[in-house]
Write a protein that binds this DNA or RNA. Structure first.
Lengths: 233, 233
DNA sequence: TGTACATCAGTGAACGCGCGTTCACTGATGTAC
DNA sequence: TGTACATCAGTGAACGCGCGTTCACTGATGTAC
C-alpha cells in the first residue's frame, strides 16, 4: 500500500494492431480533465499522460502536440452540443417550441459542462490555436439559432400587424437577431458558471425570459414550453 | 547598442521615504500587462518584475503574492468602469437615456479593455482567488443596472396598460430583469472579444437592440439615444 | 561637528518544481524465407 | 518447422526553460549621541 501509491494506473502495452486504443484513451482522458479542472485552460500534456498512465513522450505518436489533442476533444464536444440541441428540437412542438428547446438545451449543456463550455466558447485556450475550430463551430451553431428564431418569429400571431410596420425583416436582420439571442444565452451561461456562488434565480425561468424577450411573446407561454422541454415525456 | 539590449529599463533605486513609488509602478505595470497580454490569466510575477525593471524578489516587499497585486489592479479597473458608467449616465436625459448610457458605457469599456474585462468578469483568474473581489464588484454594478432598468420601465408610456395585467413587478422581478440585461451585455462583450475575427454588426446597434428588447421599446428610439450617448456634445 | 548605528529599498544567487520536447532504446508481435 | 528480420507501441532519461519563493546581502540615507 505504500509503494503502490506512486503507481496510479498500471497500464499494459497494447497488442500489435491496437495502436489507436491509446489514442482513444488520450482523447477520453483529456475530455475528462477539461471537464474536471477548475481552470481547464491550464491543461498540460503531462497531466494527460499521467491520467492515462503513460509516458509523456507517448502522446507524440498520436498527436503533434497538446493543442491538436485539445482541438480533437473540442470538436467532439461541439458535435455533442449540436446533437443535444437538435435532439431537443426534434421533440418539440411548433417553431416556438423548437426555439425554446434549442435554447434550453444549449444553456443546460453549458452549465452542466462548465469546463468544456469555457474551453469551447470562453476564448481562453492556448494562444488562440483552438478558436479556428471553435469559431467555425460557433458559426454553425449560430446558424441553427438564427434559423430557429426566424421560424418562431414568422409564426407569431401578431405577424400580420407587423407586416404593416416598417420592420420587415431581411436575412441580415434575422442574422442579427439570432446573434443577439446567442450572445444573451452565452452571457447567461458564462456568468452563471463564473459566479455560481451568487444566488441565482431558476435557470429555466431565465431561459424562458430570454426567449420571451427575443420573440416578443408573453413570458408565461414560453415558461410552459420550457418546462415541458426540461422534462420530455 | 549590442550590450544595452539586455538591460531594458535601468531603474534607479528610490530614495528613502519613497518606498511606495515602486508599489505604484508595480500596479501600473501589472495593469498594462493585463491589458496587453493575449491571455491575461497567464500573467506572471516575474513578468511584472521585468516590466518594471526590478528583481522578482522586490515585489514581496509590497504584495504578499501576485494574486494580491492583481486583486489590487482589478479593484482599480472596476472602479474605473463604475465611474465611466456613472459619468455616462450623468450626461443622459431621462431614465431611458440613463439606462442606454450605462449599457453603452459598459459594453464599450469591455471591448476597449478586453484583457481587463476578461480578468474581471471572465472568471479565469488564478484559482478563484480574485473573484471574491470581482464578485462583490459585479454585485455593485448589477445593482446599478437593476435600478436604472427599473427606472426606465416605470417611465414607459404603456405603463398604465401594464398595470392592469398580472405582471406587476416586485423588487425580485426587477432584480431578475436587471440580471438578465447584465447577462445579455456580458455575453455581447465576451463573444465580441473572443471572436473579433467574425464579421460583427455595428456595436451600438447591438447595444440599442438589447436595451430595446429589455425595455419593450421600439428600437429606433433607443438607437437615437445610443447614438447621442456615443458622441456626447 | 563627527561618528556609530538603524532603517529603508531593494539585489542577486540559489532552490526545487513542472513543463514541452528529443532521442536512443526495448521488447513483444508479426512476416519472409 | 525454424529463424532472421521488420515493425509496432511505447519507455526512460535527459535537456533547457521559466516559474515562485527564500535568504543573506548591500549600499544609500537618516538619526542619536
Amino acid at each position: 500500500m505504500s509503494s503502490e501509491e506512486a503507481v496510479p494506473h498500471r497500464r499494459r502495452r497494447n497488442p500489435r494492431g491496437q495502436g489507436q486504443v491509446l489514442k482513444a484513451e488520450l482523447v477520453e482522458a483529456a475530455a475528462r480533465l477539461l471537464a474536471t479542472l477548475e481552470r481547464p485552460e491550464t491543461l498540460t500534456l503531462r497531466q494527460v499522460a499521467r491520467e492515462v498512465g503513460v509516458a509523456p513522450a507517448s502522446i507524440y505518436g498520436h498527436f503533434p502536440d497538446l493543442g491538436a489533442l485539445v482541438q480533437h476533444v473540442l470538436r467532439l464536444r461541439y458535435d455533442e452540443l449540436a446533437t443535444v440541441m437538435r435532439t431537443a428540437a426534434d421533440g418539440a412542438e411548433g417553431p416556438l417550441g423548437d426555439l425554446v428547446a434549442r435554447c434550453a438545451a444549449y444553456v443546460h449543456w453549458g452549465v452542466e459542462h462548465p469546463g468544456q463550455y469555457r474551453t469551447l466558447f470562453g476564448g481562453g485556450m492556448p494562444a488562440e490555436l483552438v478558436p479556428t475550430n471553435s469559431h467555425g463551430a460557433g458559426e454553425e451553431l449560430l446558424g441553427s439559432v438564427v434559423a430557429s428564431l426566424a421560424g418562431a418569429r414568422q409564426d407569431q400571431p401578431e405577424h400580420q400587424d407587423r407586416d404593416q410596420h416598417q420592420d420587415r425583416r431581411g436575412p441580415e436582420q434575422e442574422w442579427q437577431a439570432g446573434l443577439l439571442l446567442w450572445t444573451a444565452l452565452h452571457g447567461l451561461v458564462a456568468l452563471y458558471n463564473a459566479h455560481g456562488n451568487m444566488p441565482w434565480p431558476d435557470l429555466t425561468d431565465l431561459i424562458a425570459q430570454t426567449v420571451a424577450l427575443h420573440t416578443a411573446r408573453p413570458v408565461d407561454e414560453i415558461v410552459e414550453l420550457a418546462r415541458t422541454a426540461d422534462r420530455p415525456t
